[in-house]
Write a protein that binds this DNA or RNA. Structure first.
Lengths: 189, 189
DNA sequence: ATGATTTTTTGACTATTGTCAACGTTTTTC
DNA sequence: GAAAAACGTTGACAATAGTCAAAAAATCAT
């Protein structure tokens, strides 16, 4: 089984040899180049992506060409244009690989297969879901209660990797502010 | 079984007589008065609430006394101060009944009981979770890409019940804007 | 019903953040 | 390694939204 999958299941589910092979067969390896688009806005997100190495960005584009980053997915985490994946509707967001990245992809059908064939997978998935939901709740909180400076500080505290690893244009639109505002926040302490 | 539970399970899981009784026993009825606080900020949210009638509000309070509404839960939906409920940590948010309301409460332990004893409950719960997550993603989108006027229009389109049924002070802090700004949006078309 | 409380609206002013433009720097790409 | 592209910073100005205050309207409790 792929080491990233071993790690994902470690301490949660013990799999038989047969089950390991089933799981391994469901997750298909994929390499993505820097800036490669994995899901184009308007198309349907057909896969969940497990990021083995690199970083994915889920982002929105406005009519005027400006972009807003909805989520960032780092090594060890899973994600996709979620509303599109679940509802099977054209995605309003695009999915992009920020650097060169190594991924494992899981199709909707294979996700179902795992629900049916791997006892414990649905529980594991459900718990990951709950944590993702909690993250999004906290993001909403920061957006409705804090100004730009406070949101930046919180991001620096909770996710320094985002600020360290990513270009500030992307950090800015993740925070929902302009890059100029972010630049000013960084300089004025 | 309580009619609200019948409705919740309808078309999803067929329960035996015994299972119906188990489910019914896990959900405890509770009436809440107008403005009653069900979960106080700082305490742990020990229950999920199914709103039979009325409306719950999950909200944050700042040091300066200002409030921000994180979520609103109407008839037929379930919710609570979710991060606190799942992580079993003191809640940063409070839960309040906006009008007189009828609720069914499910404790963390009873939720687990249902996971273990009712086949299909976890799938049903997981799907509800996914929809709640999608809602929160769309909320984030509106917060990072739109100004106050656009957010108001979207809310009017997607959740007119919120604007119709709730005082505008609460609509305003749900949108993340001041009540004065909301008042001006409404008058200037 | 009526007095009290809360909610909503409006105005004047302020603060925060966004936009546009220019310039220097870093990073890609061939 | 050189040209091109992308990125980051700064300044001037504009626009959006917040704050404070007061009055009008609606709602609640007895």
């Amino acid at each position: 089984m792929h080491p990233a999958l071993k790690k994902l299941f470690a301490g949660k589910i013990i799999l038989t040899q047969e089950q390991e092979e089933l799981v391994n067969g469901c997750f298909k390896p994929l390499s993505a180049r820097r800036n490669e688009i994995l899901v184009q806005k308007g198309s349907i997100a057909r896969h969940l992506y497990l990021v083995v190495k690199g970083c994915l960005r889920i982002f929105l584009t406005n009519e005027d060409g400006s972009e807003a980053t909805r989520f960032l997915i780092f090594d060890g985490s899973m994600g996709t244009a979620f509303p599109s994946f679940i509802l099977k509707k054209p995605s309003v967001a695009s999915v992009q690989s920020l650097g060169p990245s190594e991924l494992l992809t899981l199709s909707y059908a294979d996700r179902q297969t795992l629900f049916n064939k791997i006892p414990g997978w649905e529980t594991m998935y459900r718990q990951a879901m709950e944590l993702a939901y909690i993250e999004s709740i906290q993001r909403i909180e920061s957006l409705i209660t804090m100004d730009a400076r406070a949101r930046y500080k919180i991001l620096l505290r909770d996710h320094p990797e985002i600020i360290q690893r990513l270009p500030s244009r992307i950090v800015a639109d993740y925070l929902g502010i302009s890059q100029e505002t972010l630049s000013r926040l960084k300089s004025k302490k």
